[in-house]
């Protein structure tokens, strides 16, 4: 059963008398109990979409519902039943941890005790600082408090707008562990992130760029559907080999991926030997060429080049 239904939603903004597309004709559904990821860079339209679904912004056209409630007609019902963690820290900085939590519980006509089981795991981590003002917390603790406040009324759906942006790799991992535990409690989670590696932690994802959805599927399916042959390549001089590989006849694209380059080729007849020979001719040493399967970033880059919704310079 679909908990979130989005049908042909569009929204544009006027900026300096020019109309800019925020999001354009988006449609998808999120199933009950699913962790659904909106994955894309800044400006892709992630926040716009979340604000429409949380009834904070009206779409220009299209319809959407959360738990069967229409985002326009039934906005009050939606507000009572969802939890929302905006991208920017929005708790009361001059209230303490405890006061913030009590405030949000009261606003939703409940108590912290009533749903304590749900937030317990997270709250115990910030409990030692419960008398500290929210404004004086570290980034990681603010994030945990914000999540507690979004959960205190036991929402059926949780909207998280870039909860891990600017957060270090360890806190990011801990945060995703918390989300997995919430999922087991039956809460549907829609989460946005610019970090492609977090895609693998979602049940299904929408890759989004320039206000359009590039693809919607499970991360496994998206990776499985990558069409081109892909090679991981290492050489002694990595920068030179990157530039050289882009002049190779069969090259579709070549990008750095940490300690290797990912080379995607146009055809399926290019062999490992062809690549090795090309690099040797160019004077490269310590060459290693291995066939690999695509990760989410490979897929995103291929899709954004193909659909050309990109607002960046794609000349590589």
């Amino acid at each position: 059963m679909a908990t979130i239904v989005v049908e042909h939603i569009s929204k544009s903004y006027t900026n300096d008398k020019k109309t800019q597309i925020g999001i354009s004709d988006l449609s998808f559904t999120v199933n009950k109990g699913e962790i659904f990821g909106l994955i894309g860079p800044d400006g892709a339209g992630k926040t716009t979409l979340i604000r429409i679904l949380t009834t904070l912004l009206l779409a220009d056209s299209g319809t959407a519902s959360v738990d069967g409630n229409d985002v326009v007609k039934d906005y009050k019902a939606i507000r009572n039943n969802i939890g929302y963690m905006p991208g920017r820290f929005s708790l009361y900085q001059d209230l303490s941890v405890e006061e913030n939590l009590n405030f949000f519980a009261t606003a939703f006509k409940t108590t912290v005790e009533e749903n304590y089981e749900l937030i317990k795991d997270i709250y115990v981590q910030i409990e030692p600082f419960k008398t500290r003002r929210a404004g004086k917390l570290s980034g990681g603790m603010k994030q945990k408090l914000a999540l507690c406040c979004a959960l205190v009324h036991k929402p059926s759906v949780l909207f998280l707008d870039e909860p891990t942006t600017g957060v270090d790799a360890i806190s990011r991992r801990e945060f995703w562990d918390m989300l997995k535990r919430l999922k087991t409690q039956g809460i549907t989670i829609l989460v946005s992130t610019p970090y492609m590696d977090e895609a693998n932690l979602c049940d299904r994802i929408a890759l989004i760029q320039g206000g359009k959805i590039l693809v919607i599927d499970s991360p496994e399916e998206i990776k499985h559907n990558y069409k081109h042959a892909l090679w991981a390549i290492k050489t002694e001089d990595m920068f030179k080999s990157l530039i050289d590989l882009r002049t190779f006849n069969s090259t579709l694209s070549c990008f750095s991926f940490g300690d290797v380059h990912h080379l995607s080729v146009k055809d399926n007849i290019t062999t490992k030997e062809d690549i090795l020979n090309f690099l040797k001719e160019k004077g490269h040493t310590e060459i290693d060429v291995q066939p690999i399967s695509a990760n989410i970033e490979d897929c995103f880059m291929e899709l954004m080049t193909k659909t050309n919704t990109s607002n960046t310079l794609v000349n590589a």
Binding site: G40, P41, D42, T165, G166, P194, M196, Q209, F239, L242, F255, S256, E297, F300, M301, M304, T305, S310, T312, L313, V314, A316
Partner: peptide, 13 residues
């Protein structure tokens, strides 16, 4: 922070 994967790589180049 926050840029698409191609731009991120072009930046490192």
């Amino acid at each position: 922070g926050g840029v698409d994967p191609i731009t991120r790589r072009q930046f490192w180049e």
